[in-house]
Design a protein around this nucleic acid. Sequence first.
DNA 1: TGGATATATATGGGATACCATGGGAAAAGC
DNA 2: GCTTTTCCCATGGTATCCCATATATATCCA
Lengths: 152, 152
Amino acid sequence: MTLFLSTHENKIDKKGRVSIPAPFRAELSPESFQGVVLFRSNTYACLEGVAWSYMQEIGNRLDDFDLFSAEQDDLATSIFGTAVQLSMDGDGRVVMPQDLIGFANLSERASFVGMGAKFQIWNPSDFEARRDEARHAVQSKKLTIPKGRGHE
Amino acid sequence: MTLFLSTHENKIDKKGRVSIPAPFRAELSPESFQGVVLFRSNTYACLEGVAWSYMQEIGNRLDDFDLFSAEQDDLATSIFGTAVQLSMDGDGRVVMPQDLIGFANLSERASFVGMGAKFQIWNPSDFEARRDEARHAVQSKKLTIPKGRGHE
DNA sequence: TGGATATATATGGGATACCATGGGAAAAGC
DNA sequence: GCTTTTCCCATGGTATCCCATATATATCCA
């Protein structure tokens, strides 16, 4: 199971390339497609990154909707239509499309934030604010992680 | 499993030719028939594009209706009756039939929108409106992707 | 323990291949 | 014989590949 952990800050060079952190590459390496899928977050000014197989899983679940239903079309449009598939070069880098760079407010550097099955890409200073906010939310609301159901 | 994602905008030249985006071609390449199947959307002013093998899947699902029912007849007519099979040339282009160009309100450019198992072809500006609409629908209806049934 | 060497990672830059697009030639249909 | 379609090649821009370098981490030997 893929598990992205920790935060890594890397540089975006003038060609728009950025190195995927090596620990994240290690999680991605069992994949048949050597690369990542990025899409816009629905909540924050950041990007979400997942493995190719994660998208296949979403695709399978969408197949359980009625074909051509409004729900299926809305979900597919907003998820698959806005995602991009980026392949890594031999050195583990991807080129970030310009519109995604703009959406996430990125310039010189990018923070890769492990979130378990996915990761996020943030403007480093935006992320610091977000991290503090999340920490306070967890403390004040006393959020906990529910007991597992054993993955039946 | 074929999985179309991301949006690609390509030009329709004066001969009516348009390049199938290279990532989509890669998804189609395992198919025995080198080309795509296009038909009119029943909901929007756009075209639906699928691999030849996916038409069989639609056919299977139509079998779940009562044979000779009005519903089956309507669906079969609107999908299979309007579908065209377009073969790609050596450079990965297809020629769009004039009636489909008219139906989808296409002129200079066409947006290919990955939707997972299928893709759609839109007038680029029409699609931007549709993308915003879909995004709002997902947020307001709180649409989520249900947990998969494991594709037994 | 300390220092030198080896390995891995991040980053820069140039060469190359690929892709979208245009146009012309050959083939097919009317 | 003329129009329409299919095939083939040319081109410009871009993204990908490949190699070089720097820096950090790990390994090894004295």
